[in-house]
Design a protein around this nucleic acid. Structure first.
Lengths: 257, 257
DNA sequence: CGATGCATTGAGAGAAATCAACCTGAGTGG
DNA sequence: CCACTCAGGTTGATTTCTCTCAATGCATCG
């Protein structure tokens, strides 16, 4: 379960010149740089940010990026792939607190205590940029644009969690599930992917855990939505047929008999 | 309902010299300065922070400090009193996202979009310090201690919300309520108040809303805890008798028959 | 091929919601 | 002073949504 992550970076292999590989991993050439930390930075500032980034590392599926209680040294920007974060309570059961995709920042909850407050695990083979927080702090003093965007990202995390609270607090099962799908849909859209056709990177159990539903309930909901012609499902492949109605269900405007 | 807040500051009355009133409202003389934004600042830095703080203003009970959608210009540090923040969904029902007390910062969720994401309402007559965010940002560049603590406070808000997610996600009614009481208890303790005897500043309905329970359930739980000798209740007056057992219930270690 | 992991489907149980009645105390006004 | 209202809180009976338990299906894999 607690698979450790190798330091291997296969990109530095024989036939590729070193600087080319370095180039490929720079912020400026990353497809996420308009969403991620370097958003809005000029070329020079982006280079300075590049220089403090420890390394880009691969995180294989199911590997742990960090664990609750680990000392906090780095933030992680997701370059590629998907992660889940979850907390574990004393009873030993976990609560998934979020699913995260490329362009998002992991680890901000650790700043307050210098220890990570949750586990982060890759849902598929992924890549992250390691951002040493103390070095990032040094940049803040003369890169106000960077600081401002960092604050926006933290604030965004706060509102994201507020929305989950709303979801867990006052939504019925069908609303929750619809809201979950709508959320994925819009996040894929901002990343330039299809908003109506995508693959779930997490299993039913993980969806259920996140939404506080049982795996059975998730299965039943998926089936109900399918029967009502709202979407097509094939294992983890989702195609949304009736986006407006699904939105309406998520909003509570429409009830799903 | 939407009571507007007067600009009145009764402290500038005749027999009190102006600078004395100014002195009384400075960070250095505020009992919360070891919890609040100025934590860890030297005298000089604290003065600089003082200078950008717009005004200290009174917020009467039930008055709205800000409303969802309002443009974001200030953060608010609570000097005195209690607030609730809540979101409203399209169906019109509200979800309380937090109860906030002196020393805490309100409005951080607004940074990401420059609009407030929730309403903030005083639960009792309260006082806040208005902190113009753009002026605060100017201070960051040469007050690293301030910036660092600001980051800690944002991070703290993220972990606070994660804990609520855990609460809403996998706790039973009695656990939620016990966890709620334990949370208040420890927060009063850090503020130098009794951890076992305090007054609830919110009604049963607000507690229920926050914990996603009905008002009836809250009432029954209160009664059950009372019968089991865990606490004494008198309207909003709470006295915790068996703190360890209440903690155990919150943790799920012990079940409350 | 059975084994294993994940997903689906059905029947029954349970925790909390809903509905409804009632209590209590503060405030109001005759 | 007492009757009245009204909001907030309590208590009891019933319902409902989702969970739990159990069986089954359906892929992948050694």
């Amino acid at each position: 379960m607690s698979q450790s992550i190798g330091i291997s970076n296969p990109e530095t292999k024989a036939d590729t010149p070193l600087d080319l590989s370095a180039l490929r991993t720079r912020c400026s050439s990353c497809s996420m740089h308009e969403l991620c930390l370097p958003m809005g930075l000029g070329e020079e500032d982006m280079n300075r940010l590049d220089q403090i980034i420890g390394r880009r590392r691969k995180v294989p599926r199911d590997a742990v990026l960090y664990r609750m209680g680990d000392p906090f040294t780095n933030l992680y920007a997701i370059r590629l792939g998907h992660f889940k974060t979850y907390q574990i309570n004393r009873e030993g059961d976990q609560q998934i607190t979020g699913f995260h995709m490329a362009g998002e920042l992991l680890g901000m909850d650790a700043i307050s205590t210098d220890r990570h407050h949750c586990d982060a695990v890759a849902l598929e083979d992924s890549e992250v940029c390691e951002i040493p927080f103390s070095r990032l702090e040094h940049l803040f003093s003369d890169m106000p644009t960077l600081l401002r965007h960092f604050h926006r990202m933290m604030s965004q995390e706060i509102t994201r969690e507020q929305n989950v609270m709303l979801l867990l607090g006052n939504m019925r099962a069908d609303q929750r599930f619809a809201a979950f799908l709508m959320n994925l849909s819009s996040r894929y859209a901002t990343r330039g992917y299809s908003s109506t056709s995508f693959q779930l990177r997490m299993g039913r159990e993980e969806i259920g855990n996140y939404l506080s539903l049982t795996i059975e309930s998730v299965s039943r909901l998926l089936n109900k939505f399918k029967k009502q012609g709202l979407l097509k499902v094939n294992n983890r492949e989702i195609e949304i047929i009736d986006l407006p109605r699904l939105k309406a269900i998520a909003a509570g405007t429409e009830v799903c008999a």
